[in-house]
């Protein structure tokens, strides 16, 4: 791949804290290598800001290898930028060319309040998982991993659902701010497996109740989530969640 350098204009959302209003600030960066990642470009910009005595831009990141799901940035109108099935940290500057203007915003969702600049609080996801994303395990010695036979197809589907990294791009992309791709994946990865069977009904009910409580919107099957998900999580998981919910809602004695 051809290596080149570029000068860019960045319009970045700056916001002091959750309560303050926030606005876009414009910055120029020079000599950015096409081999840098998007976050490395932000590192360069922040070094520059520190030298100028200004406050650096706050943004979330951790692994920088596409597995932790922290690097939430809405880049030029798309979560995680223009590349498909890709996170911001894995977005390389070769996706842009010299002279480009790039607009960077935080995730916009009632359930994900902005903490500062581009950082949002995604603990709503944690609370949804706490509401039902667990299984019962016997105490004592750990059981042999292969003690329970599992249909290969189901194991594969559960694994694909488990690939969700909880990044929140689905919520960010959805015009309704719905979290149903995330919750669908988290419900599916457990309900498809025999280990997840005991809590199957209460899990669906409790996680969906929590999801609504957090202020996420409702799915109207726009499927923007699937198109923008860095892990290619399928909307089939949303259908499965709807089915689980229907079964649980009709069949259970809990409320």
């Amino acid at each position: 791949m051809e290596h080149y350098h570029m000068n860019l204009t960045l319009k970045v959302w700056r916001q002091k804290n959750t309560k303050s209003k926030g606005n876009f600030d414009t910055y120029k960066v020079k000599d950015i290598s096409s081999e840098m990642s998007f976050l490395e470009m932000f590192d360069v910009l922040n070094e520059q800001l520190i030298k100028e005595g200004k406050l650096p831009i706050a943004f979330d990141h951790d692994c920088r290898e596409g597995i932790c799901g922290m690097c939430s940035m809405f880049i030029n109108g798309q979560p995680h930028g223009p590349w498909q099935q890709n996170t911001t940290c894995q977005l390389h500057m070769r996706a842009f060319k010299d002279g480009d203007t790039i607009v960077v915003e935080p995730w916009r969702s009632q359930a994900f309040p902005v903490v500062r600049d581009l950082m949002v609080d995604r603990s709503a996801f944690d609370r949804v998982i706490q509401a039902g994303g667990y299984i019962s395990v016997n105490t004592g010695n750990a059981v042999d991993a292969n003690a329970i036979p599992i249909d290969k197809k189901k194991a594969d589907e559960a694994f694909m659902a488990a690939a969700c990294i909880g990044c929140g791009a689905c919520v960010a992309a959805c015009p309704n701010g719905s979290a149903m791709l995330f919750v669908g994946a988290k419900i599916s990865q457990l309900s498809l497996l025999p280990q997840g069977d005991p809590e199957r009904e209460s899990r669906a009910l409790n996680m969906i109740t929590q999801m609504d409580k957090e202020g996420f919107g409702n799915c109207t099957n726009v499927y923007a989530c699937e198109a923008e998900c860095p892990k290619g999580i399928s909307v089939a998981n949303i259908a499965r969640m709807n089915k689980e919910y229907l079964h649980a809602g009709l069949g259970t004695e809990e409320n």
Partner: peptide
Amino acid sequence: QNKAARPVRYAM
């Protein structure tokens, strides 16, 4: 409900 879930719109 869905409008309330996305109170701030994206600039782009």
